[in-house]
Write a protein that binds this DNA or RNA. Structure first.
Lengths: 346, 346
DNA sequence: TTGAAAGCGCTAACAA
DNA sequence: TTGTTAGCGCTTTCAA
């Protein structure tokens, strides 16, 4: 079934059919009804690739995540999907999974497929010059970044990663910890860098020396948390009293190692995560963490993107939305302040 | 940049450019090089929507899941995505989220967008006549179903849901439980129905009466597990010794309720889940469950689909792959057999 | 209000 | 080996 056949069946021209298809004025009520009847009868659906070619828009947007099976990203994806489907857009999904090359390929493919806009969770490596982002920006391609890409100015939706990590470490310090290790995220990660910087800064600001042996990088998976946890324990002269983690998945892996080693949490070691994924509260030791509103971030990014697509204002001015983070206190962090400090405070 | 412009710049015809673009024979090495140089110089990328319209394929497939933020589905999605990206296909994602209407819309939209094939995790309600599946099948549309759709014959990838649930309940019985409740899945779910049937059958086969008050339906979310768990406890004259759950998310919610009520697991109540999502092993009480190889299922479905697309054999013959399930024993189920039974067995 | 015709950017017959 | 031509199924002028 094509528009030509429908036109023939209805004894009208293709243009008339097109007008009723798109609910545009210019056809008599009579013709409209006649065409509608035929369309209904044959259950005709316009070919959207032809519409896209002729009309210049695909009614689809691309979402480039890192790993879709990380609860943080799947909730974000749900947020994006919810607004897309409500607003009549389809979602093209890509996963870069720690590969800059994949990230580049995905974006190129999506642009070749002419998605109307792009939402990117960038890998943010220092190895990357983000040339492709520059190209997109040069073409005023509708784009929202969940994070930051080098020094480019673009639309962004994010939390204040530096402040969030700073708050986390400060919280640990406030609870009396001074020997604080960090299971840092991937080396090639902008968020990873910001959080690492914040960790160091928070220590320095409190007169605590930063020790290289207390920092171990890990990819954002549970298994990596296990690996990095072991590495940390093996490399440290003494077990730290608290360990901050790049994300909850790593923290969960660490918790496992700690249990194996008989290191009680939070009795012997305190653990703090990042993201606040659903399961944190159901863990053996409910995890104290930083809440990142992933679902909201996805929704916000999609709304921002589609608004600009609809208005045709992409590239004109950029928006930046920083969503609030907050500390979620649960059971994995102990207060080890000296009683004397407490009495002094009172 | 269009193919016409490239042709002009290279002083050749569009067709020649098209031939080198698609690595087809019919152009001299010389021309090929010349064209390649121009393409590279201008970083030209063919417009895939035009290619799709002319060529008849979009190099993209559609995946219709239920909820993307369920770890079971996000791992499956990763499986699908991994093979798609390796084989040069893009992934269009849709989430039906318990709505038959949404499911229908998603499929219609994806077909309008001319995806080369569809992978569907169907809602499988009895309210649905699967008319759209019938239409797809009639058109020999490449289709793989993760589950079953009514009485239609199609390609399927699944586990044996009946057997898996039967095994789970049998396992519970074997551990000495006779008062076994079931937190069943959504009412409108084929898998839900199969598992419920298996639960009833396993009880009957062991001479245990099926009681309506021991069956509570729940949607596949943690919060629903909490709700249904409370309902079960409120509605039962006495607390069952074991509770089987439609999926792990529901089980996790139930675990929470049980803890609140001071009902020790597995001391007082045993709990068994379904899916074996990543976190099960990290829960306060590591969850005994049925492993469903979601990642493999996604990969298998995608491979099956793309194979048929490439071979052009969709609709000719159908394939069915039933992947193995297995019981994962952890800590949430207690053996409450009488010592005497054990001695009798020995 | 309607229809004819051009064009979106590509592929694929078919000639040359 | 190359170029010309005719579509693919739609939208959108522009005349009628």
């Amino acid at each position: 079934m094509t528009i030509t056949e429908i036109a023939k069946l209805a004894n009208v021209s293709k243009s008339s059919v097109s007008l009723v298809l798109n609910n545009k004025p210019g056809v008599s009520a009579e013709t409209r009804e006649k065409v509608r009847a035929i369309i209904k009868k044959y259950r005709y659906r316009p070919n959207q690739v032809a519409q896209s070619l002729a009309g210049g828009e695909t009614k689809s947007i691309g979402l480039v995540t890192k790993e879709i099976d990380n609860p943080y990203f799947s909730r974000m994806t749900r947020g994006v999907n919810d607004v897309c489907s409500r607003l009549g857009y389809s979602l093209l999904l890509g996963c870069s999974e720690q590969s800059l090359e994949r990230e580049r390929e995905i974006i190129i493919t999506m642009v070749s497929k002419r998605v109307d806009g792009l939402i990117i969770c960038p890998l943010q490596s220092e190895d990357s010059d983000y040339a492709y982002v520059g190209d997109l920006l040069k073409d005023s391609y509708p784009l929202v970044v969940l994070g930051t890409v080098g020094s480019y100015t673009t639309n962004v939706v994010d939390i204040d990663n530096f402040q969030a990590a700073y708050d986390a470490v400060s919280y640990l310090i406030q609870k009396g910890h001074t020997e604080i290790a960090y299971l840092a995220g991937p080396v090639h990660s902008g968020h990873g860098k910001e959080r690492l910087d914040a960790y160091k800064q928070a220590l320095s600001d409190n007169g605590i020396p930063v020790q290289r042996s207390r920092i171990v990088h890990a990819k954002p998976y549970v298994a990596e948390g296990v690996r990095a946890g072991k590495e940390l324990l093996a490399g440290s002269p003494q077990v730290p009293s608290a360990i901050f983690c790049y994300n909850d998945l790593i923290a969960i892996g660490l918790l496992r190692v700690l249990e194996e080693r008989g290191l009680e949490v939070p009795g012997r070691v305190s653990v703090m995560g990042f993201d606040n994924i659903d399961i944190d509260q159901y863990l053996q030791i409910p995890l104290t963490t930083i809440d990142q509103p992933s679902y909201e971030m996805g929704k916000t990014a999609a709304n921002m993107l589609i608004k600009q697509i609809a208005a045709g204002t992409a590239g004109a001015r950029f928006e930046k939305t920083i969503l609030p983070h907050r500390i979620i206190e649960r059971k994995s962090v102990a207060n080890i302040r000296e009683p004397i400090s407490i009495s002094l405070l009172q």
